[in-house]
């Protein structure tokens, strides 16, 4: 049986990890290669790197960084941030990324999803969706899609957009709740459930992890296929082995 995945995420800027990382014994806690190795040792199921660098020149740094990481870890990893076209995807895959995560450009130019899936296979095309709850008078819950790292609202509704990206050939959805992100109050279970119930591709839930129970809830109640967290792991509030042990005891299939 397929196991549920626990995925640490690193935010990268100019080739460095920018969210605080507090691993003891690391010579350089901001060096993504070193951090990636630690997560590999902890048997993370996968790694996600999100590059928040904008300029072209600096994106070349990302490609060489991906190469260095690929040489040092033996686990799957996804790279996202600033992907605008097939050439960006090809560069990252050739550098050793297993999957790429597309967000803003997927909204601006949805055909990129089908072109990329046709060219490289659905299994390596992840579409990231950043969603924020809309307050409506009706009881029907809705979430608005944001792009540009959560700064720009769009006219898309998240569940509808999820269905559309699946139809276009995305292999996976990385779903972040803007409301929950950074709160440590738990994943947005309603948002996650709504999306996992609407698509038949895997969904990675992101935003809000604060304690072990949150992982259990999102992987079982909301049927997420994977749960992603960043600062929780960086600060070692919880370690990956601790979470997996807890989930195993609760009967969730993990590696």
């Amino acid at each position: 049986m397929l196991t549920k995945r626990i995925i640490p995420c690193l935010d990268i800027k100019d080739g460095r990890v920018v969210k605080g990382v507090k691993f003891e014994g690391l010579r350089d806690a901001g060096n993504p290669v070193e951090v990636a190795k630690v997560y590999d040792q902890q048997q993370a199921d996968e790694l996600v790197f999100l590059d928040i660098t904008a300029s072209y020149q600096k994106r070349k740094t990302l490609v060489s960084l991906v190469e260095k990481i690929a040489q040092n870890i033996f686990m799957p990893f996804t790279v996202g941030g600033g992907i605008t076209g097939l050439q960006d995807i090809r560069d990252l895959l050739n550098a050793g990324a297993d999957k790429v995560s597309i967000n803003t450009q997927a909204v601006k130019y949805p055909q990129l999803i089908s072109e990329a899936a046709g060219k490289f296979g659905s299994q390596c095309i992840v579409v990231a969706i950043d969603a924020k709850r809309i307050t409506t008078k009706s009881k029907c819950l809705k979430w608005q899609v944001f792009i540009h790292g959560g700064r720009t609202p769009t006219e898309l509704e998240a569940v509808e957009w999820a269905k559309e990206v699946a139809r276009l050939g995305a292999g996976e959805i990385l779903l972040t709740s803007i409301d929950a992100d950074g709160t440590k109050n738990g994943y947005d279970l309603e948002l996650t459930s709504a999306v996992t119930g609407a698509v038949s591709i895997p969904v990675i839930a992101s935003g809000g992890a604060g304690k072990k129970e949150h992982f259990y809830d999102v992987l079982t109640k909301a049927a997420a296929d994977a749960a992603l967290a960043a600062s929780l792991f960086h600060y070692q509030t919880l370690t990956i082995p601790e979470i997996k042990k807890y989930l195993r005891e609760k009967g969730v299939l993990v590696r």
Binding site: T3, R5, E46, Q123, E172, S200, P202, A226
Partner: peptide, 15 residues
Amino acid sequence: EASSHLKVPHIGWNQ
């Protein structure tokens, strides 16, 4: 064949 119980692609760790 994708279904409500089976997501395709099969992505992740399996035995």
